[in-house]
Design a protein around this nucleic acid. Sequence first.
DNA 1: AATGAAGGCAACCGCAGAAGG
DNA 2: GCCTTCTGCGGTTGCCTTCAT
Length: 320
Amino acid sequence: MGRSPCCDESGLKKGPWTPEEDEKLLQYIQKNGHGSWRTLPRLAGLNRCGKSCRLRWTNYLRPDIKRGKFSQEEEQTILHLHSILGNKWSAIATHLPGRTDNEIKNFWNTHLKKRLIQMGFDPMTHRPRTDFFAALPQLIALAALRDQLAADPPGSAQLQPGAGAGVDVAIQAAKLQYLQCLLQSAATTIDGIASTAAAGSTPDAEAAALCALCSPQGTQDSTAPVSAASDQLLRSCTFPEAPVSSEANQGLGYGGADVDVFTCHGGASLPPLADLSDAANNHPADGCSATASSSFGGGAGSPLPWPEFFPDDPFITDFL
DNA sequence: AATGAAGGCAACCGCAGAAGG
DNA sequence: GCCTTCTGCGGTTGCCTTCAT
């Protein structure tokens, strides 16, 4: 199996299509249908290969092509279908009327894939990346937050009654409590990595060394105590470790109605860092709740289960 | 205002597989 | 079973626009 013979022919035009060529192709297909793509260019008076004509028609000239930006619903559909179908762009395109597989592929590669990666998700599995260095930016951000807390602890001049007083103090306290929750959760995760490494099952010395970054003594004896309930909640959240197949991923719904991929049970392990904030966001009743808007347009009202990549969260940046 | 970097997108290439004669 | 044609996909390229300096 090889390259289509038509593309080997020399003298055929390549590159961008001119309006004249578009018009010829459009009129011919509207009048005769495309028939055989191999013979179409000659019959239509085009100096192009059939493959080029087919691509131009299917990706641009087809009358039912929808132009413009992808809506949030379309983005969700793509994400959902991609989690099920993988890179089956044509199959995904059949569920998005007016969108071509090429358009969806480009949109995925230039937008959605980057977003998933940025948020610590594996774009192929749609699940939090479990490799340690994927979480490194988050760890660094957490370390910065820890330093910030150490330098400016609750009860300092900023939060003294009278300075801002009332609601401001309460908001600050809530934010600090949220941060404490994140820090403690991260520390627990890293401690787990460290103990695993120490046990020899994961000989990752670098990971163990970096544990010190996010598991300071100051976290545990902070002046802002983390509520026992939220602490228990975070500790009870874990993430399935089994590799994900397309079939297994069918339960992963981006529409909000399906079962959330993040499960909570009595296990002691914590999810990877990427879903820590999700655990907090999904349980507004606990002490770690906080409103976190999404750069993806989700936020509290978003049906997407994605956790926020909290270093970019306006809440965090505002705090810092 | 000029210029270079970065991002977005249309289009192409090479390959694989399906379908039909 | 072989050949031809068509379709689909991943990867890549090159042009254009936008943005930062």
